[in-house]
């Protein structure tokens, strides 16, 4: 995985942006990555960032390449459960640049670049949200993605999946906002796990029950209940009431 960083940085450093596509195509896809492997990768990204920083800030093509580089990674609860500070600081840096002119960045994306850009952007947002709180305005960037061929919905639903699997908890207005960007039919019970409090969970669930009457909510509720996922002050009593009132 080290090679991913070295080759990408070389391509940006030498401003040969056009050779990133053949590079990405020739790279083998990765199905699993250990935490050590991921950590080494982000350490290198951080260590050598000064070799490319001014180019990334000045050229959308370079920024785009950096985001598409992240698409190659495999990020999940297992390899992210113990924090990787280097991943957080790298994502934060790139996120700042991305958010300065997100619209220009989006409009520079060619159709063939979209799949890797989208996957990379999901990884960028996931890591950033795992380590730092963002304000609503920053999250609102996502609504600017054009919904051409349901691109936006697909991207948001994958982001919600990724956040739920990394157990990122968002403030209620932010998770409501994200869920609101997706058509109700694409939501699954797993997405409700984004809820950061029992109150939020109940309000999502209530809406969900109305929209998906036939789904097996009972077993999901039992799962959430037994995992004890919400802060302890939300007592078992409210679960009992919720359970009772639904079934």
């Amino acid at each position: 995985m080290d090679a991913l960083c070295y080759f990408t940085y070389y391509i940006i450093n030498s401003r040969q942006f056009e050779i990133f596509d053949p590079f990405l195509n020739q790279l083998d896809s990765v199905s699993e990555m250990s935490r050590d492997c991921l950590r080494t990768f982000f350490r290198l990204c951080e260590k050598y960032y000064p070799m490319i920083d001014s180019i990334v800030e000045d050229h959308l093509s370079a920024l785009k390449i950096l985001i598409r580089m992240l698409s190659v990674l495999s990020i999940n609860e297992e390899n992210m459960i113990i924090g990787i500070p280097e991943a957080g600081s790298f994502a934060s840096k790139i996120f700042q640049i991305v958010s300065t002119d997100f619209e220009s960045l989006l409009s520079s994306i060619e159709d063939n670049e979209w799949p890797s850009f989208c996957r990379g952007l999901i990884h960028l947002f996931s890591i950033h949200l795992l380590y730092e709180k963002v304000n609503n305005q920053q999250l609102d960037l996502l609504s600017k993605i054009p919904n051409l061929n349901s691109r936006k919905e697909e991207m948001i639903i994958n982001l919600i999946d990724s956040l739920a699997s990394l157990r990122v908890r968002l403030p209620i207005d932010q998770s409501t906002f994200l869920i609101g960007l997706v058509g109700q039919n694409d939501l699954t019970l797993q997405h409700l796990e984004l809820a950061s409090s029992l109150d939020a969970y109940i309000s999502f669930l209530t809406q969900f029950v109305i929209d998906h009457f036939e789904t097996d909510i009972d077993s999901h509720l039992t799962k959430v209940l037994t995992e004890n996922r919400f802060p302890s002050n939300s007592n078992e009593f409210s679960f009992e009431i919720l359970h009772f009132s639904l079934f």
């Binding site: 090679a3 080759f7 050779i19 053949p22 020739q26």
Partner: peptide, 11 residues
């Protein structure tokens, strides 16, 4: 050498 590929990366 890969045909028609002017940039080839050896990993």
């Amino acid at each position: 050498l890969i045909d028609n590929q002017s940039h080839q990366f050896l990993f």
